[in-house]
């Protein structure tokens, strides 16, 4: 049986004003790109928590994409700057953990850059194919076990 080629799994967090609208424009313009990423819309890239990135990795993602507004264009003024610094630190941590920092990609995509969204998606999928699968699936045993250690409420 021929081995099926590795198709990386990606979660993409897109801000609604720029990257999400850019992804909309890629659709309206019918610019094709690989279907590996499942997008999740947030108001601002500043809403994206480093914890979500790790949650995605633990849930089987090979890469995580975050799309925000270009510097100076953030609909909420400066959320993208916060995200940039958080992701910078997160990548340092990932490197220490032995996870390739390239598996997290932060890109500025404006509402007019449908073609850019498609292009970076293609690039990211190619990059992840080069890196190969991550296999950081959750191992319940070694995670703090519920209910003794409730981790996240709300």
């Amino acid at each position: 049986m021929p081995e099926t080629p590795f198709e990386p799994k990606i979660v993409a967090f897109l801000c609604r004003w720029c990257a999400g609208a850019g992804a909309d424009l890629a659709g309206t313009s019918r610019i094709a790109y690989p279907a590996n990423a499942v997008p999740i819309r947030v108001n601002c890239s500043g809403r994206v928590e480093p914890e979500w990135v790790m949650e995605a990795f633990r849930s089987g993602a090979d890469g995580v994409f975050i799309g925000g507004c270009h510097p100076g264009d953030c609909h909420y003024v400066s959320g993208n700057y916060k995200t940039r610094r958080r992701i910078y630190l997160l990548k340092k941590l990932l490197a220490e953990m032995g996870i390739e920092p390239e598996r997290v990609r932060l890109e500025w995509v404006s509402a007019t850059e449908g073609a850019k969204y498609a292009r970076v998606m293609k690039e990211f999928v190619a990059e992840l194919k080069r890196l190969g699968p991550l296999h950081l699936e959750r191992e319940e045993k070694t995670m703090p076990a519920s209910p003794v250690l409730p981790r996240v409420g709300s």
Binding site: R47, G60, S154
Partner: peptide, 17 residues
């Protein structure tokens, strides 16, 4: 309506859990 718990469930399900 967009708590961490909600987003984490979205992430898990989006990845096929």
């Amino acid at each position: 309506n967009q708590t961490d718990a909600q987003v984490k469930r979205m992430i898990q399900v989006a990845l096929g859990a």
